[in-house]
Design a protein around this nucleic acid. Structure first.
Lengths: 333, 333
DNA sequence: GATGCTCACGCAAACGTTTGCGTAACCCGG
DNA sequence: CCGGGTTACGCAAACGTTTGCGTGAGCATC
């Protein structure tokens, strides 16, 4: 139902009575083609409805003008925002992003298979949050066999972007400490699977440093249903005046649980999270935030430079910033 | 640093002393190739580290084995989950997804340009939530010039998947009505831009029907900062015993605002949302939910069938289900 | 007005697959 | 041992671009 015969470059060449090479150069803006011809060609092209065939161009030029993104897209808002940022930067440079969402159900081998396939169809890939333990990241990089930039994880040969997890914790700890909290608890979720990275311990270490004078307790929550988690949260926070959650998702849940349990936030107990979740501002959650869209953009940019051999491998530490809001400061606005 | 000369199909053919055609057929599993040869070829292929060049294959076969997804990926968790579901289904069938995130900053023409580019590089696209008013969807479909399936919007020629927005509202209304609420208010956000679709009015109409005996008020909230929205929320809900929010994001915000304002949820005021946001269960939000991952999966499946000319255009209405939780029922668990 | 230079464009060979057709080698019954 | 049918594979022509090289026309210079 959509099978009109595609018009090719040679068709528009024939239509104009010029050589295909001229059309190609005119359209690409390369070679010595006077503006007049260029315009004539362009006009003929969209008169005829010419649409370039990227497969042919890619075959000849040895590039695909596609970038890959390996992440668990469905997992959290974070990867979606990152993908959006990466896609925007890529689109501006004429690249498109093909995504490979690797979920835990696929397992290690599923991830590797997926990476291998992906590597064949793109000029480079950005890999998000793949655990470098177990040699998984190494093997993945090997499988994709194209330039890589990692975010949230590190590979010896390729650039990476990460936040300073220690500093994230530190900022949170300092904030609570400054507010006078002396009995705080750190709440994290257990790592979902061996494929994902675990930021928790670094964040906690940083937090302990930042909260210097405070008595810090630590508790790891199960990934069971929220109903089951509820009592864990209540128990863990019973004696505390403040809670540091290692993600905003968890923090929002904790605020809800505490509130429903009759504890007033922040008057009786303050809560601080990490990420600056899209809902964090709406619910007044204090958080130390990062900017996934910017990270995605930078990752794409670095990757494209890497493809053009324009950069040495770099380690970029992306900025974070504390957003102090109601769950630690009390009612504002 | 990764520029080892790629080994081609002819290389493995030469290595084995057979014709390229034999290797091609053996690898593709097509033609009359005995198992023995097939195995020999496969082994040689990965001995040499052969990786097929999809551009060449695509050029010859006239397909790309890529699917496109047009959505605003960064906008909400919904599109991420949808993308993940679509990608999973596509991957199983040997397709990959290339995404084009169209944000409001790009505007209409940006979206159309993006669609045109995308259409050249894929065999079909799924278009999510593009407003069919203003002829935008029509023009987009025309630009992509490949098979399409729409989700959350409709085009005359192509299949679509949507939820029954009227029914969404109806279920919510019925739920509140059953619980005895008689003075309820509907809260929605203003439509972000002319490019996005607006589910709100249908949902509200359904809600009014479902809440039959109740006095229903309606209020549209601005998209300004949460701080500004706060007073709007407080004012709009002052006289109500229940609130229907047309999205979970908003519902979560409303619960937070009401709670911080000293109104007990659900004892003084009940809240119900739409979508079954990943955080909805965690914060105990009652909601009428949909399953974006399943929608994505189905959209991809239908699209692939469409590409193979295997189906007539269909209109699929995807199921929804009410999840009654704490914000309407009170403390549970 | 011949010489040299630049400009604008044409020719044709790639790029790495897939696939229709052709043809040896093989198996079978007669 | 011959003829017909099958099986296993080779040949070569595409697919739609890009690009190195070549060449004629036009221009300025001496």
């Amino acid at each position: 139902m959509n099978d009109r015969p595609r018009v090719r470059l040679v068709d528009v060449a024939a239509y104009l009575g010029v050589a295909p090479s001229t059309v190609s150069r005119a359209l690409a803006g390369a070679g010595a083609i006077p503006q007049a011809t260029r315009d004539r060609v362009k006009q003929a092209a969209d008169e005829l409805g010419y649409r370039a065939n990227p497969a042919a161009a890619g075959l000849k030029r040895g590039v695909t003008f596609n970038l890959g993104l390996i992440t668990s897209l469905g997992g959290s808002w974070y990867s979606g925002a990152l993908a959006a940022g990466a896609d925007r930067a890529a689109a501006e440079a004429g690249y498109d992003f093909v995504v490979a969402t690797a979920d835990e159900i696929d397992g290690r081998s599923g991830l590797l298979r997926r990476g291998e396939r992906l590597g064949q169809r793109v000029d480079g890939v950005v890999i998000v949050d793949v655990n470098d333990a177990n040699g998984l990241l190494d093997r993945l990089v090997e499988k994709v066999a194209v330039p890589v930039v990692t975010v949230g994880c590190r590979h010896a040969e390729w650039p990476s972007l990460e936040i300073d997890n220690h500093r994230v914790g530190f900022e949170a700890g300092k904030h609570l400490s400054t507010l006078g909290h002396r009995s705080v608890v750190v709440l994290g979720l257990e790592t979902p699977n061996e494929m994902s990275i675990d930021n928790t311990s670094e964040r906690i270490a940083g937090f302990v440093k930042g909260a210097s004078y405070s008595a810090v307790m630590r508790s790891t929550l199960s990934r069971n249903s929220p109903a089951e988690r509820r009592s864990e949260i209540v128990a863990a926070t019973a004696a505390a005046t403040a809670v540091f959650c290692t993600s905003d998702e968890l923090a929002i849940e904790v605020v809800a649980v505490l509130t429903r349990n009759g504890r007033r936030v922040p008057d009786e107990i303050a809560v601080i999270g990490v990420d600056d979740h899209p809902l964090a501002e709406a619910v007044g959650l204090t958080t130390v935030g990062q900017n996934p869209a910017a990270i995605g953009r930078d990752a794409a940019t670095i990757l494209m430079a890497q493809i053009d051999h324009q950069t040495e491998p770099v380690r970029v530490v992306v900025p974070i910033s504390l957003a102090a809001r109601a769950t630690t400061l009390g009612h504002v606005g």
